[in-house]
C-alpha cells in the first residue's frame, strides 16, 4: 500500500501496524465484508420469492401442489442449516453438471460415476475449467445464494402462509361481494394487506439471516470468518508480518460488526413497521390514526 511498507521487518509500532492492516490480505478481508453484504442483499429478495411460492403452493386447492409446498417447508425447517449446507452445495453442483452433461455431450459413453469420481465431459463442467478464477468465485457465490435462499425461503414461506391466514376474512368476502374473482381478490386485497402481518416474522428472519452468514465459508465462499481465522492465526517468520495468535481480536471485531449491523436493522425495521401500519385495520394503525 504505502511505499515504506516494502520491508516490514524494519518497521515498528504504529508504522508496522499501519502497513500490516493495509497489506493485500487485509484488503481481501475488508472486501469480504462487501461479499457478505452483497449476499444478504441478493438472498433476501430471492428467499422472499421462494417463500411466496412456497406459501402459495401450501394454500393450493390442488392436493399434490399443497403437499409439495408443505413438504418443502417442513423438511427444510426440520434440519439444522449447517447440516444442509454441508452436503447440499456439492449435490447442487453435481446436479447442474449432470444436466449440462446430458444436454451437451449425449455421445459421451463413459459412466458419469466412476467409483467415487464424478466425471462429466469437459464441456459440461460448470464453470469451464478454462474459466478464470473470478468466474469460479462468482459461481460459488451464486450457489451459496441459492442454498441460503432455499433454507430461508422455507422459513419465509411459513411466515407468509401465516400472514395470508391472518388477513381478516371479511376483507376477502367483501372483495368477492364486489364481484372480484379469486385471482383479483388475491392480488388486490390479500397480498397488499398481508405484509403488515408478515413484517414481524420477516424482520425476525432478516436478523436470523444476518446471523447465519458466518456459515458461508462452508459453502466455499471466502467470507469474513474465513479471513478472520486466516489473518488471526499465529504467523511464523515465513510471513512478512509475523505475530502471535490474534484470532481473539479479529473475532471481537466481527462481534462489533454484527452487533452494529443488528442495531441498524432494528432501527430500519421499526420505521418500516410504522409506515406499513399506517391506515391498516390493526391496533397499531388505529393508534396512529388517533395521534394524527
Amino acid at each position: 500500500m504505502f511505499a515504506h511498507c516494502a520491508d516490514p521487518s524494519t518497521l515498528e509500532g504504529f508504522a508496522w501496524l499501519a502497513c500490516y492492516l493495509t497489506n493485500g490480505k487485509h484488503m481481501l478481508f475488508y472486501g469480504s465484508f462487501g461479499t457478505v453484504l452483497l449476499l444478504l442483499a441478493i438472498t433476501a429478495p430471492v428467499s422472499l420469492a421462494f417463500g411466496f411460492a412456497g406459501a402459495v403452493a401450501s394454500r393450493s386447492h390442488i392436493p399434490p401442489v399443497a403437499w409439495i409446498g408443505k413438504l418443502y417447508t417442513s423438511i427444510v425447517r426440520g434440519v439444522p442449516d449447517i447440516v444442509f449446507f454441508l452436503f447440499f452445495v456439492i449435490a447442487l453442483d453435481q446436479g447442474i453438471e449432470w444436466l449440462r452433461h446430458q444436454a451437451i455431450c449425449p455421445d459421451w459413453t463413459e459412466p458419469v460415476r466412476q467409483g467415487n469420481d464424478f466425471v462429466v465431459c469437459p464441456e459440461a463442467k460448470m464453470p469451464l475449467s478454462t474459466a478464470p478464477q473470478s468466474i469460479h468465485e462468482i459461481y460459488n457465490f451464486t450457489l451459496a445464494v441459492f442454498t441460503f435462499a432455499i433454507v430461508f425461503g422455507a422459513f419465509a414461506a411459513n411466515v407468509l402462509y401465516g400472514a395470508m391466514n391472518a388477513v381478516p376474512r371479511p376483507q376477502l368476502e367483501t372483495a368477492h361481494a364486489y364481484g372480484m374473482n379469486d385471482r383479483q381478490t388475491f392480488w388486490r386485497i390479500l397480498v397488499p394487506q398481508m405484509w403488515v402481518y408478515a413484517l414481524p416474522g420477516l424482520g425476525n428472519l432478516w436478523m436470523i439471516l444476518i446471523k447465519a452468514t458466518p456459515l458461508l465459508f462452508l459453502l466455499g465462499v471466502q467470507d469474513i470468518v474465513y479471513w478472520a481465522r486466516e489473518l488471526g492465526g499465529s504467523k511464523t517468520a515465513i510471513y512478512a508480518y509475523p505475530h502471535p495468535d490474534w484470532r481473539l481480536y479479529y473475532f471481537l471485531f466481527l462481534l462489533v460488526f454484527y452487533l452494529a449491523f443488528t442495531r441498524v436493522s432494528e432501527v430500519v425495521l421499526e420505521r418500516i413497521t410504522r409506515k406499513l401500519s399506517h391506515g391498516q385495520a390493526t391496533a397499531a394503525g388505529e393508534a396512529m390514526r388517533r395521534e394524527a
Binding site: 490480505k25 486466516e230 492465526g233 511464523t236 515465513i238 510471513y239
Partner: peptide, 14 residues
C-alpha cells in the same frame, strides 16, 4: 493454504 511452509496464503493474499 494454511500449512506453512508447504502451502500458505502470503501477505498479498496469494
Amino acid at each position: 493454504g494454511a500449512y506453512p511452509p508447504y502451502n500458505f496464503i502470503n501477505d498479498n493474499g496469494e
